[in-house]
Design a protein around this nucleic acid. Structure first.
Lengths: 232, 232
DNA sequence: CCTCAATTTCAACGACCGTTGAATTATTCG
DNA sequence: CGAATAATTCAACGGTCGTTGAAATTGAGG
């Protein structure tokens, strides 16, 4: 994590203060909070420094730039998600495809559901970030996406899903709509449909997965297992 | 359109220059371009003025603030959409529900499909705008949404759609996923799935509507009319 | 031409921005 | 202790921002 600046000359390396006030991990935490609150452009180095209760210049000691901070944040946040999904997508898993897809959606909910700011930054950066940032995000997303593709392909092989599914598009639909539900339903349910936000959220998640499942299943007349939505 | 400043005293009103250089409509055009390119926060009054080739202060002569410009933009952009949708949702329209829903999606494509910046601003402002802006957007969106709700409700009555549909959620799913396709597929298709963007866009629209239709139709085994996707 | 009002420009305010180089503090080793 | 080094702070640069009040420009009515 400690980056470029410290170039030690010889065996005299463990000299200076090791943990004085501010750990880079603390800076990342502060950065995540500020990014989440203000977005990538709105988040100033000075605001991150205020949040971390340190001097703005210190951030440049630990990170090359604001963009580098965001990349570090990505590298901290995304791999755990990929690992959970990779376990879920293992071909030896013979649970019903509907259950596996639902569980995959729960992984995204667990890691992204309560961090609307980070979702927004991620979405904004893949649209408008620098080329380097777009590439970095794409690599992380692809690793996740491959798991969903695998689950869908196995579902087709096992006869659970329509054989003519566009696998990669379908994976996009599943995940992206959950993200949109997290983002937008709380913001618009009360204003547009006059439904309390928390109530709308649960309703939307369920309605979406039912619609999705009916859309992809080989035998849509066969309903979802009723215990599905009580799985944590 | 001309706002507060000009308070004329008597019959001496048609004195000064009437159309000198900059019409407020031109300012709105410039604002739309800049909002689209830079987002709501990123778009500076100075940048809008540069785009309109006028002085920044002139903008404050015609509009109370940047937010007021955005509201004026909304009031110009949204009503034509609502009018097209309201015509489409008229109960006397007895076309197949699938066709009506597809046409509704084409209305959104027509007005939003080539203006990714405005979509982004709209989405951003309903999440993070001021209360006044959120309310204004919600009013416009609700007027549109009601049309989609009506088409879905008529579809249920006519036996085209599942009777247990969550109408308002379903309308959200339909439209919002098209928007996400416009936004994200071009940005991620090449990087993540290695598919050319323009090709992916067409594929995604079709795949989404097929999944959606199968998810909502009363008889999903009955396929969509094949001519659907050749309707302009 | 002159007046007067509608329109447009100018100049400036204070604030915040990302970044950098030099100076300062804190800690460990000899 | 004193030197060396890691961690941190300070002060400043040039820049952009939203906004405003005063000044200048424009054009029609008299």
């Amino acid at each position: 994590m400690k980056p470029s600046p410290p170039k030690m000359s010889a065996a005299l390396k463990n000299r200076g203060p090791k943990r004085l006030k501010v750990d880079p991990e603390l800076l990342l935490n502060a950065a995540q909070r500020v990014f989440s609150k203000s977005g990538m452009n709105g988040a100033s180095i000075r605001a991150i420094a205020r949040e971390a209760e340190c001097d703005p210049a210190l951030i440049y000691y630990h990170f090359k730039s604001k963009e580098a901070m965001f990349h570090a944040l990505l590298d901290r946040k995304m791999p755990p998600i990929a690992m959970e999904l990779e376990a879920l997508a293992d071909p030896s898993n013979t649970e019903p495809t509907s259950l596996r897809l639902w569980r995959a959606s729960r992984v995204f909910r667990h890691y992204f559901g309560e961090d609307s700011g980070f979702r927004a930054v991620l979405r904004g950066q893949i649209l408008n970030g620098t080329e380097g940032t777009k590439d970095a995000i794409a690599r992380h997303i692809q690793r996740n996406a491959k798991c969903n593709w695998a689950i869908l392909e196995q579902g087709i092989e096992r006869g659970h899903l329509r054989a003519d599914l566009q696998v990669r598009m379908t994976a996009f639909f599943l995940v992206r709509m959950f993200m949109e539900i997290f983002d937008l339903i709380p913001a618009i349910a009360e204003r547009i449909a006059n439904v309390p936000a928390n109530q709308a959220l649960v309703l939307a998640e369920r309605a979406w997965f039912e619609l999705f499942w009916r859309g992809v299943a080989a035998h849509p007349a066969k309903p979802l297992p009723p215990e599905l939505f009580s799985v944590e």
